[in-house]
């Protein structure tokens, strides 16, 4: 009897979590514009999306910024993680606390403080400011995914490579990097997903007609309901879900390897 109750409770919570998303997805295929009734299957809203210039340019910006910011953040973050890993304890602690600061501080504060900076140095708000902001909030996540891999590394690996005649650069490229690669790739995927997902920071750091998908969705949703938003939502949800599954499989794959 008690098990039965538990199952029902869990089912209700999952229903609460998933019902809105599922209904959103189902209604993106709804022929009528009215949201209450189902009046037949259509791909009309998806083809509307393809015709909407504003949405297409937002999509282009979103993907370009996600790719660029993930790549640059991975580069800076991985190098930083290696550097931090080799620091003395106290210095490491101070820097790690600083690294956590943007992770814990509210997005709205990160966003507006960056906006103030950009305006202060007279950088025009637009694509570049958006990109810089995304790199900034992505770097800590890359560091936090790479550091654990570095901790697992054998301390003597690097020295052994040097003893065998490798230059420091070779030792990093051919010995250290392949070892920490899983963490680097996870960090990059995480950064990509976070960038794709961000709204608040983008909202404050963009300007002059440069928009991302989430900014477009917000300005459309503010005006009320629009089936086109359902279509974008569906595409975004499926994309993020796929990325998440890939990251998860990668992570559990690494885990299994270690156990063996």
């Amino acid at each position: 009897m008690k098990e039965y109750l538990k199952r029902i409770y869990a089912m209700l919570i999952y229903l609460f979590l998933y019902a809105p998303i599922l209904i959103l997805i189902v209604f993106s295929f709804n022929a009528s514009k009215s949201r209450g009734v189902w009046s037949g299957f259509t791909l009309h809203w998806y083809s509307e999306l393809l015709k909407d210039r504003q949405i297409l340019s937002a999509l282009y910006n979103t993907i370009l910024i996600a790719v660029l910011s993930a790549l640059i953040a991975t580069l800076i973050g991985t190098a930083a993680a290696i550097g931090i890993h080799n620091m003395k304890k106290l210095k490491k602690k101070v820097i790690m606390n600083l690294t956590y600061l943007p992770v814990v501080s509210p997005d709205i504060v990160t966003g507006l403080s960056l906006m103030i900076l950009f305006v202060f140095v007279k950088l025009q708000l637009g694509f570049l400011s958006l990109l810089l902001a995304h790199i900034t909030f992505n770097i800590p996540y890359v560091i936090l995914s790479v550091l654990p891999k570095l901790k697992q590394l054998d301390k003597h690996l690097y020295e052994a490579a040097l003893d065998l005649g490798a230059t420091p650069l070779e030792a990093y490229r051919k010995v250290i990097l392949p070892e920490i690669m899983p963490g680097v790739v996870t960090g990059m995927l995480l950064a990509f997903t976070l960038s794709l997902d961000d709204f608040v920071i983008s909202f404050f750091t963009t300007g002059s007609g440069v928009s991302t998908l989430s900014i477009t969705v917000y300005s459309m949703a503010r005006r009320g309901i629009n089936p086109k938003i359902n279509a974008i939502s569906t595409i975004l949800f499926v994309t993020v879900l796929l990325l998440l599954i890939i990251v998860n499989i990668r992570m559990s794959g690494n885990h299994n390897k270690k156990e063996r």
Binding site: P20, L24, F199, S233
Partner: peptide, 18 residues
């Protein structure tokens, strides 16, 4: 349980609007 958390919160909020 974690999956919905990764859907953009803007879209989750919009879902309730509809």
């Amino acid at each position: 349980f974690v999956v919905p958390m990764w859907m953009n919160f803007l879209l989750r909020t919009y879902a309730w609007m509809t």
